[in-house]
Design a protein around this nucleic acid. Structure first.
Length: 262
DNA sequence: ATGGTTGTGCGACAA
């Protein structure tokens, strides 16, 4: 099966782009973040016509919002509130083989990487802690996939300049440590880096500002596909649909995908 | 150090 994750940055504005992504990647499951629409206003008919008749949607007005789009029937695996906020940052589905897919949108964290002066950064760190505790409590023996816009680029090769981004939110050591604790609390495996070696630069996001695309390629790998330990050996391919960042009216994120062969 | 762009929804604010 192919699982893809994409921060769509408004699903209603991006339907044509969504169709293009679906035609190229043909994912079985496409997990979206920042759909920016209330659940009741989600364009379910348009998305079904694109090829995803099965949908799990957790939306809200204006901000955040996640969805799992599927070609196959799937059951609702629930969603939880993180940091006691009802802000639509997670939804889970249970698919073929009883595999759980968890779709996350981690808080971006604002500009100042200091939790004492920046509430948004404090929220991001608290979210990471809570997600680590959640991971540690997951029952073993279930196959799982975790995807999403985790808003952190953990490796030096996940950013265009490690040195210049050390104090920039998304690549600070305290965030990278928080993300590592979350991953290690369950033994999540970075599926994309199983395929694309860590010594290769790899990005999934390029800012709308500074006209960084396509000239200077100042990107960051903020979007991730993780799998449970028992699925690590089943990851057969993975990549970033980098070209999507260059299309007309792009999201600032490119889709990230992985193939899992059971 | 600053400013740069996009989206929601028509204000700022978030990213």
């Amino acid at each position: 099966m192919r699982v893809a994750t994409w921060n769509v940055n408004s699903v209603r504005l991006r339907l044509d782009t969504l169709r293009r992504v679906a035609d190229i990647l043909e994912p079985d499951y496409l997990c979206l973040q920042e759909i920016k629409v209330r659940t009741e206003d989600f364009p379910a008919g348009d998305v079904a016509a694109i090829g995803f008749p099965h949908q799990l949607v957790r939306g809200m007005k204006s901000y955040n919002g996640v969805a799992i789009l599927s070609r196959h029937p799937l059951s609702d695996g629930g969603s939880r509130d993180w940091c006691a906020r009802d802000d639509a940052r997670h939804v889970a589905g249970i698919v073929e083989g009883g595999i759980e897919i968890h779709n996350f949108y981690v808080p971006a964290g604002g500009d100042e990487p200091d939790p004492d002066v920046n509430d948004k950064f404090a929220h991001k760190l608290a979210f990471l802690d809570e997600a680590a505790r959640w991971s540690a409590a997951l029952a073993p023996g279930c196959r799982r996939v975790l995807v999403g816009d985790l808003n952190i680029a953990p490796l030096e090769t996940d950013v265009w300049s490690h040195r210049q981004l050390l104090k920039v939110v998304s690549h600070t050591p305290i965030e990278v440590e928080g993300l590592s604790r979350w991953r290690e609390a369950y033994g999540w495996v970075d599926a994309v880096r199983r395929i694309i070696p860590e010594d290769q630069q790899l990005y999934s996001w390029w800012s709308y500002r500074n006209r960084t695309w396509p000239g200077s390629d100042r990107g960051r790998r903020l979007d991730h596909v993780w799998v449970s330990p028992d699925l690590a050996g089943c990851v057969t391919d993975a990549g970033v649909l980098r070209e999507a960042r260059g299309w007309k009216m792009p999201s600032d994120h490119a889709p990230v995908w992985a193939d899992i062969t059971l």
